[in-house]
């Protein structure tokens, strides 16, 4: 096996260009499981943990640029105030040991339908910055995934960073699993209010082959809030609106039966989670106080 350890981003891109079959490894929390169990025998590993550029984040022009190598623990500690939805989701990932090593870039590139980082990134209209020696492109997170464990990266490309605007309104995330720690999601739902644009963002996880937004539900809710002038003068939401939002979210799902849950259960659960998380964000929008599950 070749083991490549670039110490600069440029060298990492160079390595990937010359070894297109190399498997990048960041926190190793997905890759090592596959290697330990003999499911993957990479000819070349490209270790990204020596590349300092990947573990930085910065705020440029009002948007956060988060290096692909920033682990969940740091997303929680350092960006929890600016990206509360992503932080809530990050807190549900694995265990402290997993959150110390697992990265956002690894979560995206693994492209599991159950990746907990994806729904909050969708709800906040994040973009994935992809680079190769050929240049840089940014891909909206909703277009990054092409199927179960598949994405748009070409063989010579690496994820450099994720771009996302800091929250301007309440954000929430809900995950169903068999227990609180160390659990792959049965399904997840993220919602973000964007009051300055009078828009609502959503993201569904484990409810279709790829994470997806519930566009119709989001547009319905945003229009409802705008029509009733609730963005600036929020009042308790009518039960009918909350219910309709849940129904529209559930209608977006295309789930499967698997060992973690049935398709029917997932569709039902999605409506419940949508109603609940909407209740939490709306309460926060009205009172300014975050609510926990």
């Amino acid at each position: 096996m070749d083991f490549l350890r670039p110490t600069h981003w440029r060298d990492a891109l160079d390595a990937k260009a010359h070894h297109p079959d190399a498997t990048p490894i960041a926190g190793g929390t997905d890759v090592m499981v596959e290697i330990n169990f003999g499911r993957r025998r990479p000819s070349t590993l490209l270790d990204l943990t020596g590349v300092p550029e990947l573990t930085d984040w910065s705020l440029d022009d009002g948007r956060l640029r988060i290096g692909a190598g920033v682990p969940y623990a740091r997303l929680i500690d350092e960006l929890g105030d600016r990206l509360p939805g992503l932080a809530i989701a990050s807190r549900t990932v694995g265990s402290p040991q997993i959150r110390n090593r697992g990265t956002l870039g690894g979560n995206l590139a693994s492209a599991s339908p159950a990746g907990d980082g994806h729904p909050p990134l969708l709800a906040s209209d994040a973009e994935v910055e992809v680079q190769s020696l050929r240049g840089t492109r940014t891909v909206p997170v909703g277009e990054f995934f092409t199927g179960v464990k598949r994405h748009v990266l070409a063989d010579d490309e690496l994820i450099a960073a994720v771009h996302v605007a800091p929250a301007t309104g309440a954000q929430q995330f809900s995950k169903i699993g068999t227990r609180n720690a160390m659990v792959i999601a049965v399904c997840t739902f993220a919602v973000a209010l964007h009051p300055e644009q009078q828009r609502v963002g959503t993201g569904l996880g484990s409810a279709a082959p790829t994470p997806r937004p519930a566009t119709e539900a989001a547009e319905f809710l945003a229009a409802e809030l705008t029509d009733t002038d609730q963005w600036n003068r929020p009042r308790p939401l009518p039960e009918s609106v909350v219910r309709r939002f849940g129904e529209l979210v559930a209608a977006t799902t295309a789930p499967i039966d698997d060992v973690r849950g049935t398709a029917n259960y997932r569709t039902h659960a999605m409506a419940v989670m949508a109603r609940r998380t909407l209740g939490w964000v709306w309460n926060e929008h009205r009172t300014g106080r975050q609510q926990c599950a």
């Binding site: 350890r5 190793g28 890759v31 330990n36 590993l45 040991q97 090593r101």
Partner: peptide, 25 residues
């Protein structure tokens, strides 16, 4: 596979599962 924590060590001061760190890293 990172599930049990019985291999927990500190790598550069950060708690991690030793079974999920590649030797080369």
């Amino acid at each position: 596979q990172g599930e049990c924590g019985s291999c927990t060590v500190r790598l550069d001061g950060v708690a991690a599962c030793a079974c999920l760190v590649a030797a080369g890293q």
